[in-house]
Design a protein around this nucleic acid. Structure first.
Length: 966
RNA sequence: AGGCGCGUAGCUCAGUUGGUUAGAGCGCUACCUUGACAUGGUAGAGGUCGUUGGUUCGACUCCAAUCGCGCCUACCA
């Protein structure tokens, strides 16, 4: 083995082998099944830290369950991401000075497919680099044939049940993309604007009303001014008419208690029902009133084009829209209208005003409420059972509090606008005839036959496509073959857990639950693990414009500073930020980013995955875990050195319980590490089952480094290197050494797949593992009989209670305390750690004596003791530096070695610590309330503690006096 | 406005039914090229757990208030 761990040398090779041999395809034969659906990344996507985190967690779960022998599927696939993808390709066309309409629908879509083929594999390549054991053989795409069938099926069935309908309504219109958006795709942010106070003169000539608005240009579409009927100021004017400025139209003053707050603004609200959701609601309440119904379009006057410019008048409208403003963009129209009102002295004042501005999440364009025909899902009947599923515990959120967010949204849910006026997506399966009739069906042929329409009867299909999330909502069953009743569907639906960020609970999670219950009659997953966001080390969200984005692949492979700077500053939306970003990057990564490898990165994600918390990605952590990999690597080198071609007492049995081939002798250290291993196994399994990946990682780290490496490997040396040690003892230690390591590798594999596989391949044969084991039938690659297959399909280590050995743990605690005591004296006394020292033992009991004798080789080797002598019962020995092991005093004589003053200081410090400790405990016990009320066990614990502290104290004080009197 | 979450060592974070001397990694200090590993070893310094009250024999942990930070949802024209 190489001296230093090098992830590059191993990672990609192993992934290829795993994939080629088909290990990712579910083939386990266990009784239980386990399935996770990948949240399908956008086909336009590139991997970011969120994916890194998310996929590490899923892969850890998948590998864990696969090793447990469950039939395990991690479903792979991608999402067509309608708007996002279309935008990317449109931007490419723009570079060629073309628009999508120049190509036409068919050619444009062809072009997107071409682009998908070319770059769509990018993210799947990156996912492979993360070690994700996805079932690529059954990869799906939301636009593939099968999934398209599922989409049509669902649409038609919902339509037939009346749960999908078409209607003219106000929608969120993106004037840049020319499409409707659902409420979720609109993000509102606070921006600074103005509030204009405008005068609307009364038709009877007796003055005016003042309305306040943030959007003066919409006045062209006003149909009324509303006041609160209880408002004394305006009450008497209700029903009167106003002259709507600039238009020559008259509009009524109406009463609306629900919408108008007399306290706000002037208490008069202009009503523009075609361009404001609240106003639309007001209009719906009042549209039967004559003063409104007799207006053009019954008062529902749209004034904009699809670009949000003022539209032209249509035939028969006369000059409903004043000539002057026609063709103006909404913001130009605003300026002009404000100027014109000013000129007519109808503008009373302009205030600065903060308002929430709605923008399209993809385009960034300000959304215009706009009157159009769209398709909707009637959502309430679907939401009801979806809410109940969570209430009844059929779906559990982890952490639990996310269910509140879910309820909150589901209980106030609005009908879902599912049609989009773009080209890339599932075309709506609806056809129209010239009479304006709508026919919904799976195909045009089906429609014709169902409605008895001749082949030459003109029909045209709806131009619109479905919201991307419509197909995503079906993902948990459509990918498994639905509407066909496939084996996979039977095996894996419902899936076990959905792993996702909170940002798509509404977009995706809720909709999957609704559709799953509706069409599969069961929830799509039993648990939802909601993880946090990956942020930079300062807690800022990573974004291109901030220039703080880390690419998981760069952390794996490393990247030079110049390349990193270039990457961060190229292709920016706001190039003026490039300089700042460059400076910042050079400061933070003066030497670029070193290569850490996939395993280190995965371990970092796991270690930082505390529930319900965002993670700040800290370079120090990943570096530390890279070092951990190196530690594991070198521990293995040491083990291999000692066990290769040696008698380890291991036969050619399978993993788990191979019988020793010869007599073994085990040291307390052997029993101790075996015991510690059993406890660690349990901790790790419980942590993974409970989604506490941080605890799992920590347990593995501590066992590996602090117990196996720091202690056990050292404790092996005096046995293995000792000519006097028996062959049986050496055999026992070698066997323990190699088998604990083999267990540890399996324990760690779900989090760090590569290094564990690499090492395991060398270690396993020596540890007695041969051939394929039960639960694994995937030998598609044709492995030779008896050859080692893969750690992936080995059983996850199970705690063996019989090996838990409290006596050995207590015994080793004594040994460690002994060693630590001497090291501490040496450390604080500036005695070189390697210098052998003579040691005297005072206050010993039989146990101490026995242990000191028995473990002499450990003590000599780890504490570098020159001699150990037990003093007679009352002999306190010469002037010495002292350490306590229980009641026993471990003494290192001062003569020639120890600085008297230093030892006095050291003892005083120690005594001080013990004293304050004893005082505190004494106080506690002196409090009768404590003794009375606290449970007996707690009180007894305090008593024991005090007794121990006092003994130690007297012992050390005596020691101190002795030295002081020197 | 409503809801959720977070403030623990210089930094990034654990601390699951209230009872240890409040832990880990990084960083820092001193010493150590010991034959697995300097991506290492040994020893050490460093925290009145945001603040203030309360409950309790006992509070980092429970309750209330308060300050600071973040997020989500719905909004007033």
């Amino acid at each position: 083995m190489e001296k230093t761990y090098d992830p590059h040398a191993i990672e990609q090779r192993w992934y290829q082998i795993w994939e080629e041999r088909g290990y990712f395809t579910p083939s386990q034969t266990g009784d239980a099944n386990y399935c996770i659906m990948i949240p399908p990344p956008n086909v336009t996507g590139t991997l970011h830290m969120g994916h890194g985190f998310n996929n590490t967690i899923m892969d850890t779960l998948i590998r864990y369950h696969r090793m447990k022998g469950e039939k395990t599927l991690w479903q792979a696939g991608m999402d067509h991401a309608g708007i996002a993808t279309q935008m990317v390709v449109e931007r490419q066309l723009e570079a060629e000075n073309k628009k999508r309409h120049d190509l036409g629908r068919e050619k444009f879509i062809e072009r997107i497919w071409e682009w998908k083929a070319e770059s769509g594999g990018n993210i799947t390549r990156q996912l492979r680099r993360l070690g994700s054991s996805l079932d690529w053989q059954h990869e799906r795409f939301t636009m593939d044939d099968g999934l398209s069938e599922a989409v049509k099926e669902v649409f038609v069935r919902l339509y037939e049940e009346g749960l999908i309908y078409r209607g003219k309504r106000l929608v969120n219109w993106d004037p840049k993309l020319h499409t409707a958006l659902s409420d979720l795709e609109v993000l509102s942010e606070e921006e600074y604007g103005h509030m204009w106070h405008m005068r609307y003169p009364l038709s009877n000539g007796k003055g005016h009303l003042v309305v306040a608005t943030t959007r003066p240009e919409t006045m062209l579409g006003d149909c009324a001014v509303a006041v609160n009927p209880t408002d004394e100021r305006y009450k008497h004017m209700i029903g009167e008419l106003l002259e709507l400025p600039l238009t020559g139209r008259r509009i009524p003053i109406i009463a609306d208690e629900e919408h108008v707050d007399p306290e706000f603004g002037t208490g008069c609200v202009k009503i523009t029902p075609a361009h404001d959701f609240n106003d639309y609601a007001v209009w719906q309440r009042h549209r039967d009133e004559v003063t409104i119904s007799e207006q053009a379009h019954g008062g529902l006057i749209n004034i904009f084009t699809i670009d949000a410019a003022v539209r032209d008048n249509e035939e028969g409208e006369g000059s409903l829209i004043p000539e002057k403003y026609i063709g103006m963009d909404r913001y130009d129209a605003r300026k002009q209208i404000v100027a014109d009102l000013e000129e007519q002295r109808l503008l009373e004042q302009i205030d600065d005003h903060k308002l929430m501005v709605p923008r399209g999440d993809r385009s960034g364009a300000v959304i215009e409420p706009f009157l159009t025909d769209q398709w909707y899902v009637k959502i309430a009947p679907l939401a009801k059972p979806a809410i109940e599923a969570v209430e009844r515990g059929k779906i559990r959120f982890v952490p639990d509090n996310w269910k509140n967010t879910y309820y909150e949204w589901m209980r106030n849910i609005q009908d879902w606008c599912i049609s989009r006026q773009i080209w890339w997506g599932h075309r709506i399966p609806a056809w129209y005839d010239d009479q304006g009739n709508v026919y919904v069906g799976r195909t045009e042929a089906e429609v014709r036959s169902q409605h008895d329409l001749d082949d030459d009867y003109p029909l045209r299909q709806d131009e619109d496509v479905l919201d991307t999330w419509f197909s995503s909502a079906l993902w948990p069953f459509s990918t498994l073959g639905w509407p066909e009743q496939t084996e996979r569907l039977k095996d894996f639906y419902p899936t076990n857990v959905l792993v996702t960020g909170f940002d798509i609970i509404f977009f995706w999670v809720a909709r999957m639950i609704m559709m799953g219950i509706k069409f599969m009659d069961d929830v799509p997953f039993k648990e939802v693990y909601v993880h946090g966001l990956v942020r930079d080390s300062h807690g800022d969200k990573m974004s291109k414009s901030k220039g703080n984005v880390l690419d998981p692949i760069d952390l794996i492979d490393g990247i030079e500073l110049e390349k990193l700077v270039e990457k961060r500053t190229s292709g920016m939306m706001q190039p003026q930020l490039a300089k700042k970003i460059e400076k910042q990057t050079r400061k933070e990564f003066p030497n670029g980013i070193p290569s850490f490898g996939t395993d280190a990165q995965r371990f970092t994600f796991a270690a930082l995955a505390a529930t319900g918390r965002d993670i700040k990605f800290d370079m120090g952590r990943i570096e530390g875990y890279r070092n951990f990999c190196n530690k594991l690597w070198n521990a293995t080198r040491y083990v291999m050195m000692n066990v290769e071609n040696q008698d380890c007492g291991v036969g050619g049995a399978k993993t788990g319980h191979s019988e020793p081939t010869a007599t073994l002798e085990r040291s307390a250290a052997d029993y101790w590490i075996l015991s510690r291993l059993q406890k660690t196994k349990q901790t790790v399994a419980e942590a993974i089952e409970g989604y506490r990946f941080d605890h799992a990682a920590q347990a593995i780290y501590e066992f590996t480094w602090n117990e196996y490496c720091d202690w056990y490997l050292e404790l092996c040396k005096p046995v293995l290197n000792n000519d006097k040690a028996s062959e049986a003892a050496k055999r026992g230690t070698r066997r323990t050494l190699v088998r604990v390591l083999e267990n540890l590798l399996r324990l760690t594999h779900p989090i760090m797949p590569f290094i564990t596989e690499e090492i395991w391949q060398r270690v396993a044969p020596i540890a007695g593992v041969t051939g394929a084991v039960q639960g694994s039938t995937s030998v598609a690659g044709g492995t030779t009989p008896g050859a080692i297959e893969t750690i992936m399909n080995q059983p996850f280590p199970i705690q063996r209670k019989a090996l838990i050995n409290e006596a050995a743990e207590t015994e080793m605690a004594w040994v460690m305390q002994f060693i630590l005591g001497i090291r501490k004296i040496k450390g604080e006394m500036n005695i070189s750690p390697g210098k052998p020292v003579p040691v005297l033992l005072a206050n010993t009991d039989d146990n101490d004596k026995a242990l000191a004798e028995k473990h002499r080789p450990f003590l000599d080797f780890l504490a570098r003791t020159e001699s150990i002598e037990v003093l007679p019962p009352h002999d306190q020995g010469p002037e010495s530096a002292t350490a306590l092991v229980g009641e026993m005093k471990v003494l290192i004589p001062l003569a020639g070695l120890i600085d008297k003053e230093a030892e006095i200081k050291r003892l005083e410090k120690e005594i001080g610590r013990l004293q304050s400790d004893a005082d505190r405990t004494e106080n506690k016990l002196g409090n009768p309330k404590f003794v009375d009320k606290a449970p007996e066990t707690v009180v007894q614990k305090e008593r024991d503690k005090l007794a121990e502290a006092l003994k130690a104290l007297t012992s050390l004080q005596a020691q101190l006096e002795k030295i002081q009197n020197l």
